[in-house]
Write a protein that binds this DNA or RNA. Structure first.
Lengths: 219, 219, 219, 219
DNA sequence: GCCTAACCGAGACGGTACGTCACGTCTTTTA
DNA sequence: TAAAAGACGTGACGTACCGTCTCGGTTAGGC
């Protein structure tokens, strides 16, 4: 789970006193508590984190190379679990997927701050890449799998690039939380996006029948 | 151009030495040069900016309340001009709009850093809101205007929320540059997104003919 | 008076805000107050000195390269003024010289600590050399001058190395305060040393008459 | 040899693995090697000493309460053996005593550093007292014994304070090595000091004949 | 020949100080 | 009065040691 143990891997098995796992937890939870308490990101110094967690500064630097790397683990710990897909149809799975994305942006008081943390992490391309690979990509894979199943049972056209289609579904939801982090997103947003996209925006699209019948067209 | 002149409006017309406009430009261009030279954002201190621009620190603080506010002006200066819309059809206008969005993300070596600057600015909600209102919103208004014209001439269905539709078009492009700032986006991405959305993703959509014919369906 | 301004001597006249002399004084007096208050030397961190003097750490490092160099100025400030020599005879001058040496070792509560400071400074040969050159050597020169006058008026033999003779007078007094810093030295120690040395230790030395007549032999 | 075993004297005779004497030696010799290698005193951390000696930190703290106490044993180990007195006369014995003092100050490259170690120890009065009692006092006793024998056989006046006379002999030699640790002391310094003092500095002293004849006056 | 207590090296731990750097403010002189 | 320069108090940075505390593994008795 930890990003990089920073232990010089030179010695044999475990020599010396082993690292305390409790410390790891205390630090990450300390950061979360500070964020929940409304401490602005600019006041989240390593020094203060250490003080809050009741931990020496060196103990933090022994595990993480800096604030960014620590934040990476904080975000990973805060990431909500993978949503449970109903599996009844591609359309329903997509709605659940987008809905979980919407909820992530408004989970309690700290969500705005978590958003800032994510933004802050971009200062270091390496760290951001690590976040992208371990958090964003898996979620993306899940979406593409859902789309693939949709193609298989005829809910989705065959002649489309699934990567792009995934962005088309996810983009509208994500871009709202990125551009206006504190805006409240309407509850039926996921449904509206999915249905609108499935039925097309041009006037030649399937008639309004498709808008209410949520299930697969032929079933 | 400056966001907040910070001049206490107490004195008469202009007493003493007037502020040099050259200073303003020198500072903003200094920041840009540093970014272009690959200086990481974390090393962009006010102290260094002042040194680079050959300017006193106090002179910077006289104009901007801090680094974030300065960055705001830097981003505004770096923002590409509003794209020239062809006006031949909603579809073509949308392609140009999205294409300008794509290009913004790969403008030279500094684009990745400008992206970081944008991310950094989110640490301060006030500053981000200012950026949002002066840069994001106008561009958004432009898109919605295009969509409205599309509805008027039958290119877009009548029963849709234009705000949401705008996000649906813009989202896929934006989310890619947000999640993977250094990825190269294919040149025909704008076209593909627009056409895919106009024609719908469900199997009942217009046949493949619509996919190649890029022009408006009825023209 | 200051040991090394540490200012890079590159710019022309005085540019920018000049250094505050009050700060210099506050720091040195802060150290002295801490020593007087019985703070052990090992707790005399730069951090604490700065806090005591109400001064930033950087302000200290701007003037002194480290604790040792600062202590150098503290010792120079604490050094008692050059004693007033009576000039009545070499013997009397020597007694005054040695007496001032004795008194330096017991000036208030802080003398023991000043002694520690001196000891500490030896960790850095460069700093000690500076102390030696600016404090020890002048005092030494004074002693040798007294001896030279003694040779001139017949109080001291002609065939002796004045440097060595000076050490012979100063040594016994100094060695006591070095080896046993907290011992109280008897009040008449200076007199006893001078007279004993002038009259010789061998049994063939001048009879006890020389011991009471303190003045020059021919008076 | 060890100053304070620091073993809590609660258990019976010797239970468990006994302490390795080799470790004790390794640590002390490690310190000496570091000093010989020119490592400045300020870089002589317990951590580095342990690393050099290939020993755990706790092993050092098991034996010594801290760096100062360890240095005490280092100095004791470095102390040259008590000089062999010829016994032919007080004058000769004193010369040998002072000569051994002179030699101590120039024993290889490390003598300057040993001097620093001694100085450093003064930071802790307790440690310095221990050094004084176990190293300085015995040597002092030896000097006073020599003087007493000199009084007995007529080489030294009867009416003098032996403690003070001892300081008078030792002081000039010691003060030179204290004030200028790196100065080279001339080879005949011991002889010159002793003879000068025995014959007195006043012009009424024995004529120059006594200056060359080094032996006791009456033999 | 075990048992077991104390040793050993290694290194993590909570602290504290180091010396540097940047913050935003404040004096200076110069224009 | 604004400008460049740079000192100022503050406080975080990342590192190094402090002295203590586990770890796994040794090394001697005493049984």
């Amino acid at each position: 789970m930890s990003s990089a143990p920073r232990r010089p891997v030179h010695a044999g098995p475990t020599r010396g006193r082993p690292r305390s796992e409790a410390v790891e937890r205390a630090v990450i939870e300390g950061v979360m508590r500070l964020l929940e308490d409304g401490v602005p990101l600019s006041e989240l110094s390593v020094e203060r984190i250490a003080r809050t967690a009741g931990v020496g500064k060196a103990t933090i630097y022994r595990r993480w190379s800096g604030k960014e790397e620590l934040f990476l683990d904080v975000l990973r710990a805060a990431e909500p679990p993978e949503p449970q897909l109903p599996g009844t149809s591609m359309r329903d799975d997509l709605v659940v997927l987008l809905e979980s994305l919407r909820r992530r942006g408004l989970a309690g008081r700290n969500s705005a701050m978590l958003h800032s943390v994510r933004a802050q992490m971009k200062s270091s391309p390496k760290i951001w890449a690590a976040y992208h690979d371990t958090v964003v990509v898996p979620r993306r894979r899940l979406g593409i799998e859902v789309l693939r199943r949709g193609q298989a049972n005829g809910e989705l056209r065959d002649d489309v690039d699934l990567e792009l289609v995934n962005d088309v579904f996810v983009g509208p939801m994500l871009v709202r939380s990125v551009l206006r982090p504190d805006a409240e997103l309407p509850e039926d947003l996921a449904e509206r996006i999915v249905d609108m996209l499935l039925q097309g925006l041009g006037p030649a699209g399937a008639p309004s029948a498709a808008a209410d019948s949520a299930g697969p067209p032929a079933a």
